[in-house]
Design a protein around this nucleic acid. Structure first.
Length: 595
RNA sequence: GCUCCAGUAGCUCAGGGGAUAGAGCAACGCAUUCCUAACGCGUAGGCCACAGGUUCGAAUCCUGUCUGGAGCACCA
């Protein structure tokens, strides 16, 4: 087991491997060993292993096992077989390891600089193809702050899978089909016009108002009719439902109007995506599957799981606690489920995807369990491999967001406020930045708020939190990278040019040591983030890197130092900045040229 | 009513069987002729919702209670 083992795995993994084989010497088989952090109050150690679980499994005393392990590892170190570890001690059931930080540091830094933007990436591709179903705004509605979540979390998940060796298709699953568009068509015909829509400054706003009016009118009708009999469906709703039915059957006039709404909406969405720097590989909206719906409904009807109930085609999953799901309405029209079934099959058969990841809010948890269950019952394999990555709802202090009650925070307003805040800060600092840098900072701040914490928690919208630019935030991390790069430039540092430069005897300082340790953990954290579908793990690590870099930057004068460490330190700065930038890249956050 | 998710510092959150529970914000104090202060250093702030249980060991696992969020047939 030499130091220069496979360069594919990281140094941390190599050390783990060494401990693992040491365990093998003691118990006969190699057991998976994970190096954790050692506690701060025990000085001089860097990583720790808890052997209780291991000892129990083999019926050994944890304390004895720890002692024995220390002895075996100690021999390896002494024999100069493994010089990355300089000391190993046991404390109760823990085995603590001190790394030879100078050696390890130079190795890790060297690898990062060598691999650059590829550092942390899985070398072996071919893990499979995954479709990430993300963003998915509904047409004819303005995007509100809540729509940010699926978009940025989806982008980060997609990137995580990509660096994890998967082929990824980012699919913006636009909501452009369904009864609500029948209602919208009715509203346009009754109270608006195509001409007005074409000329409108804010076409989506125009459509949204019509949609809201539709519901207001429905409420009025319902009240009137309530005086008579029990009303299930108002006249207006019936018209809306019929209009959708017409749309679905291919009525030319309705289709034309619908198409216009789609095009106008997409144009608006594109502006926001551009600001955020979010890209999709495809945008196959729900309507894309409109010609496959008949076939899908037939398939369900002919399958063992489909039954007719109250005129509708349903799948009863009560036996597994999932209730009943409608696949075809009693009037023959499709529902969301029909489209998603067709979509899943298309992704499996046509796109050759192995897996689909739906980045959609927690309110649809039951729905996706139903979707996967139906696919399973239909014998469609992708269903059992797909996942619903959910995120908590965004509320306002006043309560749930509601387009109809005008109680929303529009995404474009949040962006605008972000730009204003950045510009105000710049004025105070007397710094000038171009629009691109401002955009990157605002987009970063917005994304961090979604990616920096467990997405499953629901959140109450708060301007200061949504646009936080201090401390645990994207601008803080971006700033660290910008400082690092500027420092490198000022020092005349160039990658790979080291002739005659001393790069020895470094990384003894505590902060430098912490930085090295965090760099070592990068690829592991990346992998964990992917496996848990949790970008926040990555955010936590790169924030930590930025934090320690800031400490280092403030206390260590690098340029002008003449203690012979300058080049080694610059290399460390380079590696740190590269790693942070890689991590930010995975989160979909760009680094401005200047800050 | 049933099901799922969450409750950790004043606020927003990390940690999710192990060693003395950590950050950011807010507060207070310090620093600054030096690589840009969206920065750094320090102080203070905790019955980890509550009650039982499992364990050598629980913020972490189990059960129950309370509080908040989400969902439960022709919306998406």
């Amino acid at each position: 087991m030499a130091n220069n083992k496979s360069k594919i795995s990281g140094v941390l993994e190599d050390i783990e491997q060494m401990v693992q084989s040491s365990v093998g010497v003691l118990v006969g088989t190699e057991e998976v060993v994970v190096l954790g952090d050692s506690p701060d109050h025990i000085e001089g150690v860097d990583f720790g292993v808890n052997v209780v679980g291991l000892a129990k499994r083999f019926g050994l005393s944890p304390v004895d096992l720890a002692k024995d392990l220390v002895e075996v590892i100690g021999k390896k170190i002494e024999g100069d077989d493994f010089s990355w570890v300089s000391r190993v001690v046991s404390v109760g059931p823990f085995v603590n390891i001190e790394i030879n930080v100078d050696l390890v540091g130079r190795e890790v830094v060297g690898r990062i600089i060598e691999q650059g933007g590829d550092y942390g990436k899985e070398r072996e591709g071919g893990k499979g193809k995954v479709v990430v179903d993300m963003s998915s705004p509904n047409i004819a509605k303005r995007m509100n702050y809540g729509h940010l979540r699926s978009t940025v979390i989806g982008a980060a998940i997609a990137n995580l899978y990509e660096v994890g060796g998967y082929e990824v298709v980012r699919d913006n699953h636009i909501g452009d089909w369904g009864t609500q568009y029948g209602k919208l068509m009715v509203a346009i015909e009754k109270w608006g016009s195509m001409q007005k829509l074409k000329k409108a400054d804010d076409p989506i706003g125009y459509l949204q108002e019509l949609y809201v009016k539709f519901h207001d009118e429905v409420d009025k009708q319902a009240e009137v009719e309530k005086d008579g009999e029990v009303v299930v469906e108002t006249e207006l709703e019936r018209e809306g439902r019929e209009a959708f039915s017409k749309l679905e059957k291919g009525d030319k006039q309705v289709r034309e109007l619908w198409k216009m709404c789609v095009d106008l909406s997409m144009k608006e969405f594109e502006k926001i995506y551009q600001f955020l720097g979010v890209k999709f590989d495809v945008a196959l909206g729900e309507s894309f599957y409109k010609d496959k719906l008949e076939e899908t409904m037939e398939l369900v009807e002919k399958s063992d799981c489909g039954t007719i109930s109250e005129g509708a085609l349903v799948v009863d999953m009560d036996d597994v606690g999932l209730g009943v799901s409608i696949v075809r309405k009693s009037d023959g029209a499709s529902v969301y489920m029909t489209r998603d079934l067709a979509c899943a099959m298309y992704r499996a058969e046509e796109m050759k995807a192995d897996k689909a990841i739906y980045v959609v809010g927690e309110d649809q948890k039951l729905y996706f369990r139903q979707l996967f269950e139906i696919l399973k019952r239909l014998g469609v394999e992708i269903g059992s491999k797909s996942e619903h990555i959910y995120f908590g709802m965004v509320r306002l202090k006043e309560g749930k967001m509601s387009t109809r009650k005008g109680r929303t925070v529009l995404l474009k307003d949040v962006i605008e406020e972000g730009v204003n805040r950045v510009e105000k800060t710049l004025k105070e600092k007397g710094v000038r930045l171009d629009d691109e840098a401002v955009r990157q900072i605002v987009a970063g701040a917005l994304k961090w708020n979604d990616l920096g914490q467990d997405a499953r928690r629901s959140m109450v919208f708060d301007w200061d939190e949504a646009l936080n630019m201090q401390g645990y935030s994207a601008p803080y991390v971006q700033y660290a990278v910008v400082r690092a790069k500027s420092l490198l430039k000022k020092a005349g540092y160039e990658r790979g040019v080291l002739e005659g430069k001393r790069v020895k005897g470094v990384y003894g300082d505590e902060t430098e040591r912490d930085l090295v340790k965090m760099l070592m953990k990068y690829s592991r954290v990346l992998k964990e983030a992917m496996e848990h579908n949790d970008p926040s793990r990555l955010a936590v690590l790169i924030y930590s890197l930025a934090k320690h870099f800031s400490t280092f930057y403030n206390k260590t004068q690098i340029i002008g130092s003449d203690d012979g460490l300058i080049w080694a330190r610059l290399r460390l700065v380079d590696a740190v900045s590269q790693t942070i930038e890689n991590g930010l890249g995975v989160l979909g956050i760009e680094v401005p040229k200047k800050m």
